[in-house]
């Protein structure tokens, strides 16, 4: 297995996200250790690995929720380490969460409008006095938010509270909300978790669709092999905080270290390869 970071055809193209030597230590636990990844602009990239491999921690470091112990995260040439999360988002990185973190008591529409907050285009004085740009901008903002909802088929439920949506729709709403921040890089943390096969199919279609329409780069964590193998162009596999393999879905499927990590000698850790539809 060669150790190149990028898929061959993208080796010289723009590295939108370039993580070098990233580590995170919690107390004595080394959650992520010397992690490298390079995601080309426009790519659909997968990050997989058994539970506790450190995938979500990587996401948390990219988005600034956790501060890395060492290493650098270059996004479009700028190092993000030490930058507060909201500025990272404003630079163009959006994410979803493994355990859905919607604004539960707000309406579906408001969830998306909040993500659009930074583009609201009116100031505090205008908001309180309701003068100036307020009415126009608020209308535009609402319409944009509704358009995002329409992409995910949620426009008919815009006035419902987020917590009252069924699970699959909550997942989709979370992606819609992330998209409304107008990102260039979208991080999806187990988007298909808990979905049935039909919902998963829709989701895969959606991911392709949004990548193409919004000209996005997508990095996704996923457990369902069907999703990963079905849509990712390039995959990085982690175990115990380290990269153990990279390659195309086909490479990964036949990689012995990956199979071992998931099923082999450490099967007792309680993890299993999620086979499609099972």
């Amino acid at each position: 297995m060669d150790d190149q970071l990028l898929p061959p055809e993208a080796a010289y193209s723009n590295r939108l996200l370039d993580i070098q030597n990233l580590s995170k230590v919690f107390g004595g636990l080394r959650a992520v250790s010397h992690f490298d990844i390079a995601v080309p602009e426009g790519g659909l990239y997968g990050l997989i690995g058994p539970n506790g491999a450190g995938k979500t921690t990587v996401f948390n470091m990219i988005t600034g929720v956790y501060a890395p112990t060492e290493g650098a995260i270059y996004f479009d040439g700028t190092d993000l380490v030490g930058m507060p999360p909201h500025l990272i988002t404003r630079r163009g990185i959006a994410r979803t969460f493994q355990n859905i973190r919607l604004f539960q008591n707000l309406t579906v529409l408001d969830n998306v409008r909040i993500a659009y907050h930074t583009h609201a285009g009116y100031g505090l004085v205008e908001a309180i006095s309701r003068l100036g740009r307020f009415s126009r901008q608020e209308r535009i903002l609402t319409e944009r938010a509704q358009d995002f909802l329409a992409v995910f088929g949620l426009h008919n439920r815009q006035l419902e509270l987020a917590k009252n949506l069924p699970y699959g729709e909550q997942r989709r709403l979370e992606i819609a909300r992330a998209l409304a921040t107008q990102p260039r890089l979208l991080l999806l943390d187990e988007p298909a978790a808990g979905m049935n096969p039909a919902e998963t199919d829709t989701l895969m279609e959606l991911i392709h669709f949004i990548r193409d329409t919004f000209k996005l780069t997508i990095l996704l964590i996923e457990h369902q092999m069907r999703v990963v193998m079905g849509i990712c162009e390039w995959i990085t596999v982690m175990d115990f905080g380290q990269v153990i393999a990279r390659g195309t879905p086909r490479d990964i499927q036949n990689n012995e270290r990956v199979i071992e990590a998931y099923l082999g000698t450490r099967a007792g850790r309680g993890m299993a390869l999620h086979v499609a539809g099972s």
């Binding site: 600034g64 507060p84 999360p85 994410r95 993500a115 921040t181």
Partner: peptide, 8 residues
């Protein structure tokens, strides 16, 4: 945390 990652 969700608010932060939405750019708030």
């Amino acid at each position: 945390i969700a608010a932060k990652t939405m750019g708030v």
